[in-house]
Amino acid sequence: MKLWRLKPRWLLAGAGIVAAATLISVAIASLTSPSPQENLHVETVDKGDIEKVVLVTGVLKPAVQVNVGAQVNGQLRKLYVRLGDKVKKGQLLAEIDPTIQESELNNAEAQLASARAQKRAEETALKRYRLEYARQQAMMRDGSGVRSDLEQASADYEAQIQQVEVSDSQIVQAEMAVKTANANLGYTRIVAPIDGEVLGIVTHEGQTIVSSQMAPTILVLADLDTMLVQTRISEADIQKIHPGQPLRFYVIANPDKHYTSTMGFVQPAPQEALEEQQPGSSGNNQQATAVYYNGTFDIPNTQRELKTAMTAQVFIQIAEAKGVLRIPVVALGQALDTDRYRVTTVENGKTQQRTIRIGINDRQYAEVLEGLQMGDRVVVAQDTVQG
């Protein structure tokens, strides 16, 4: 009987302990578990600049580069410059042994003298034939002449006139030969065609130069005060690029320093399309190749920091908006149109959906045209709570 009476009391005490433990657990859980708003990553709508760019790769070249060659044969007798020397237009750079050209000039001058002497002889003969023709005409008028002698004198006189004209042509040819020989002799003295610097020396003293088919290069001159950046623009971006667009770039050798310029010339056809198709190549292979267009611009280089053949990373600005409302691109939700999106905002601890219209974006920020105001809070990410 005593045991039966104590059993309900023991059960009631145990139930009370369990209920208390449950209440404590619920309280602790309510204090430690975050609210739905605390799981949200929120950004505030602010104002700033947005720049949309196209990234291309470029190669640096001197704005003016000339391969100075030889137009005559001979041994390179003397070089008057070294690598890196600055030269002025007309300055003597090198000399080729002029022995052959001097001989050719002497021969041409002798041929000219001979042609002129030959003309004087022909003019003397013409004078004699003219007198004989006049004498025969006079004899015919007196009745003492013979018709055949008159005709012969007339023919000799006319033939000699033609011979004098031949001599004139020979003199012209000889004069041209003298001019050519003089020019060839002048070509043995290589002078600078531009102001610039010696970028490279290809032919050295003592080497023999043969210019039978093409002018061999002796040295390379370049104006390094201005560099030309040649970029390759993909077919996907070419319609966005035009002359006059602002741009900036850096060279791989110094990524921390940026240079600014504007786009100059944009080639209207790919370089491959302008070059003659090589024998054996097929049209199908050309179609499978990516298409690139050349875009070039200048950059001052007075400090000589930029070197030939450097690689440049070029950012061409195709759109810009300054001091506009913007939100992170990751805050954009469902796309309703090309420029309309749904975003999630937080107001008074509650979330709601809004439709906004955007302008340009640079893949980091998007310009807000409609739907949000300065200071609004938008959700950019939400943590997932795992059970």
Rank of each mutant, 00 (worst) to 15 (best):
R82S: 15
G349M: 05
S212L: 12
S148R: 12
E158A: 12
D225H: 13
Y187G: 04
V368W: 09
S25F: 14
L93Q: 10
D195R: 01
T124C: 03
T289P: 00
L372K: 00
G186A: 04
D383P: 01
D383N: 14
D49S: 12
G69A: 04
K179G: 05
A155H: 08
V81E: 08
Q313D: 11
E51T: 15
H41W: 10
S167W: 04
Q267P: 02
L83R: 11
N184A: 05
E109Y: 09
G264T: 02
E205C: 03
T384R: 13
D156Y: 08
K127R: 14
I50D: 06
P34Q: 07
L221G: 06
L126E: 12
T180P: 00
E102Y: 11
N294G: 01
D376Q: 04
T32W: 13
N361Q: 15
T302C: 00
I238D: 06
L76C: 07
I17R: 01
K350I: 05
E132R: 10
E305V: 01
P268M: 03
G58M: 02
R248S: 13
N348P: 02
L336T: 05
V172F: 04
A70M: 02
P268N: 13
G371A: 07
E175S: 12
V229W: 05
R130S: 15
H242P: 04
D142M: 12
G143K: 05
R304A: 09
K7N: 03
S281A: 09
A138I: 08
Q118E: 14
R232F: 09
L6H: 11
V379G: 07
T231M: 13
Q65F: 01
T57P: 00
Q373H: 15
R248C: 00
P255S: 06
T296G: 00
Q152Y: 03
A121R: 11
Y341Q: 02
G200F: 06
